[in-house]
Design a protein around this nucleic acid. Sequence first.
DNA 1: TTGCCGATATATCGGCTCGATATAACAGGA
DNA 2: TCCTGTTATATCGAGCCGATATATCGGCAA
Lengths: 218, 218
Amino acid sequence: MAAGSNSLELVVLGLLKEQDMHGYELKKRMTESLGLIMHVSWGSLYPALARLEARGAVKAVEARPAAPSIPMTGSLGGERAVFRSSSDGLRGSRNKKVYGITDLGSALFSEMLNNDSEIDEKGFAVRLAFANHMDSQTRLKMLKERRDLILERVQSSRKNIEKKRFALEPYVELVLEHFRSTSSSDLAWIEELIAKEESSIKNSGTDLLVSQEIKDSI
Amino acid sequence: MAAGSNSLELVVLGLLKEQDMHGYELKKRMTESLGLIMHVSWGSLYPALARLEARGAVKAVEARPAAPSIPMTGSLGGERAVFRSSSDGLRGSRNKKVYGITDLGSALFSEMLNNDSEIDEKGFAVRLAFANHMDSQTRLKMLKERRDLILERVQSSRKNIEKKRFALEPYVELVLEHFRSTSSSDLAWIEELIAKEESSIKNSGTDLLVSQEIKDSI
DNA sequence: TTGCCGATATATCGGCTCGATATAACAGGA
DNA sequence: TCCTGTTATATCGAGCCGATATATCGGCAA
């Protein structure tokens, strides 16, 4: 029942929550604002939109009246195209298909955001990027899970390396050292976020549902 | 013709260059020594081995005589199993299928390592891990390509963010800031490696095939 | 006007990866 | 003897990626 940890669908829903968009616009927006974090290909995006539409999470809507960037020419062609849109199957001028999020889609977004636990770097980053749609407790839980995961990986790596009979190739050690250093700085960053989150929770009296761990720390 | 940038096959060949192994052993070795860098699943590993075998890059070989870890029981069962192996299709005791790399496989390894250019973090890290099998010029080229790629991404991200009308969600900015910081440290690391490589090239008189860029810097 | 180029826009294909699952042989202990 | 855990191979469905196909449209130069 729980939709299993699909970060692309999460991003699509998250962006559609802000604004109705068509596929091309979605990709542009993703690469522009989240380009450092994730990358999406056509072969993923359009099937994802189709899946979401089939599930009823998004639906084709009437295109927004006017693009904010001035077309400079009040062309009749555009008008005709928009007209064709409504008579046809909600297809905009340049064969555009503008999607909007449904109530079910909003619910799905919350469900994915709050109840899926991500394993990989990308999944975590994406989820964190939309963390303002979570409540403090969930955010804190996510951060701590991530912290524990990284910690465990680094320790396990150190352990496996140190007690090894087989000699590692020189560049492997180089790469590993860098990854450990990166992990350390990631860890410090997450710890910082956790600390901020906890102090924020303590200050704004969310006495209800405060976890045992926090209570102990008071 | 050029096998397109498959880092899993690269790792398999690289590990088989050191030692004959079966699939299970390969995965263990990967997660133990390269666990921080990459992750491989059964559903990728066995098909990859099958592909490589079909291409003639690896082939099933007789299992190594004795496991270094003492079985403690000189059981007859084990002997029978090993016998079954040679009469059967080179299957070892516990139905093991031990692979060895062929000459063609070694050639393919070099080809992939030297002529493929990786786009993603994982691909680069894996390739760098086996960089001792490259010559200095290729290593340098790979490092510089990586540096330029990261540089371009960070700049493009900054550019797109700064001149945006749409407001970013608060946590997006947080995540982006961290990714930029990570990219900066990656960049510094790579620059360091480049510097070392260049000084190493200059000192050990590899006058043959020295690139124009290096010649200029002298 | 026409004709072309580049940006916009959607869609699909093959090949690969992943997580889950099935199956089985064997070891060691209760 | 049974039972659990490790070793070992294999396959399935679903999703992602890079490449490619196919249009439409705006602008601009001949």
